[in-house]
């Protein structure tokens, strides 16, 4: 059983890291979900015991399963769930403001933005300043949550 768990955890973590290195936001999120599940499985594996449900008093000398790892894993699952939702929200809002989820494309856009900003700052007049703050305000309203 331990070997099986170790193998599954290894495969999950490895696939997660593989996806994490892809230049696509949604693949990165999927990779992170796999890594989080590898961690959850590690928690389960850290207290693998066979026995009765740990509710009430056990009759006689029957063994009781370790309830702690179940509780920990459940908590970790909930946290992983919240984090996945947050990351998906972030990816969607990147997609909406940049129309791309490709990390290379995003960094290219960012570099272009930086150049534009520098060029704008050199002659500098107030009109552009206003433009920029308007842009930010609009972007804020569009963002979910």
């Amino acid at each position: 059983m331990n070997l099986l768990f170790a193998l599954v955890i290894g495969v999950l973590f490895g696939s997660g890291v593989f996806l994490l290195l892809k230049p696509d936001l949604f693949r990165v999120v999927a990779g992170l979900v796999l890594i989080s599940n590898a961690a959850n499985l590690t928690l389960m594996a850290s207290g693998l015991t066979r026995g009765l449900a740990p509710i009430g008093r056990a009759a006689g000398d029957e063994r009781v399963a370790d309830p702690l790892v179940q509780a920990m894993t459940l908590t970790a699952l909930v946290i992983g769930f919240a984090v996945t939702a947050l990351l998906l929200g972030l990816s969607v809002s990147v997609y909406r403001s940049r129309h791309s989820v490709d990390l290379d494309e995003l960094s290219r856009q960012q570099a272009a933005d930086a150049v534009r900003r520098e060029a704008r700052e050199a002659p500098h007049d107030e009109e552009h300043e206003l433009d920029e703050s308007d842009e930010q305000r609009v972007a804020y309203h569009e963002a979910p949550t």
């Binding site: 998906l88 929200g89 969607v92 997609y95 909406r96 129309h99 979910p144």
Partner: peptide, 10 residues
């Protein structure tokens, strides 16, 4: 709901 709305808008 929020994520599908965002996806369909995009």
């Amino acid at each position: 709901d929020v994520l599908t709305a965002a996806g369909e808008d995009g």
